[in-house]
Amino acid sequence: MDMGRLDGKRALVTAAGQGIGRASVLAMAAEGAQVFATDINEAALAGLGDGIEAFVLDVRDPDSVAQGMARARPDVLFNCAGFVHHGSVLEAQDEEWDFALDLNVRSMFRTMRAALPGMLERGGGSIINMSSACSSVIGAPNRFIYGTTKAAVIGMTKSVAVDFITRGIRCNCICPGTVESPSWHDRVKSLGEQVGSYEEALRQFVSRQPMGRVAKAEEIAALVVYLASDESAFTTGQPFVIDGGWSG
């Protein structure tokens, strides 16, 4: 019988109810991992299938994070929770700034701090953080708050990687371009209300992708599997840009 690429590994995924998180849960489970799918929305976790343990975890609540890590005892942590705010620095509101820093950055600080002691005790682990091509990699119009927080994720990833490089811990981040997901469709609809039609908004989103399309969540999930697996054992501290040539 063929061995799965993630046999024997325990993986916890945040924001697993839809999009990249959900696709990654299914991809890692298919490769043999024992997957713990978490989300703040319990209903979104329905239907993931046998062998996947799903439970509510609020990445903005330190107690919820601590309980989730104690339950999952992950060898692999995929931090996928985040939110995209629209607008330039002139439109940014203090409450939006505070929310984005908490959800997009501080939540990963919470989960990594909670997961690392167990990983160190067990002799190793792989942490995968969701950043974006819109970060320190490339600027995107009207993404001031989002791009700032995702640049912070890259810096945080590199810091964790260098601090624990000799202790069996790897920490990398993924920097996608535009990815098809329910939340992306919501952003297209919102832009469509501003520019006059959903079709025009869709054209604008797709036009910035040199390949002429947006990514599928499953394409990002394939990279998650690689970074979770021992195939990437010599890789740490890296932002993996997977953006269809947008930043190229």
Score class of each variant (00 low, 15 high):
residue 195 V to I: 07
residue 223 L to E: 10
residue 4 G to T: 05
residue 168 G to P: 05
residue 132 S to G: 05
residue 30 A to Y: 00
residue 131 S to Q: 03
residue 34 Q to H: 15
residue 89 V to N: 13
residue 43 A to F: 14
residue 67 Q to V: 13
residue 118 G to L: 09
residue 83 F to T: 12
residue 214 V to G: 08
residue 23 A to N: 01
residue 40 I to F: 00
residue 113 R to T: 09
residue 145 I to N: 06
residue 230 D to H: 09
residue 58 D to Y: 02
residue 109 F to H: 14
residue 9 K to G: 10
residue 177 G to M: 10
residue 246 W to A: 10
residue 173 C to L: 01
residue 69 M to N: 08
residue 39 D to R: 07
residue 104 N to S: 06
residue 165 I to N: 08
residue 246 W to Y: 14
residue 95 E to M: 13
residue 67 Q to D: 15
residue 194 Q to H: 11
residue 124 G to V: 07
residue 210 P to Y: 07
residue 169 I to L: 04
residue 34 Q to C: 13
residue 161 A to E: 09
residue 185 H to M: 11
residue 95 E to C: 12
residue 45 L to A: 03
residue 60 R to A: 14
residue 65 V to S: 02
residue 172 N to I: 06
residue 6 L to A: 06
residue 210 P to R: 10
residue 19 G to D: 10
residue 96 E to I: 13
residue 36 F to H: 07
residue 122 R to I: 00
residue 248 G to M: 10
residue 76 V to N: 05
residue 191 L to Y: 09
residue 207 S to L: 10
residue 170 R to W: 07
residue 172 N to H: 07
residue 98 D to Y: 01
residue 66 A to W: 04
residue 190 S to A: 15
residue 36 F to L: 00
residue 55 F to L: 13
residue 230 D to F: 08
residue 42 E to R: 14
residue 26 L to C: 09
residue 50 D to P: 14
residue 209 Q to W: 14
residue 73 R to Q: 12
residue 61 D to H: 03
residue 26 L to K: 11
residue 135 S to A: 13
residue 219 E to H: 08
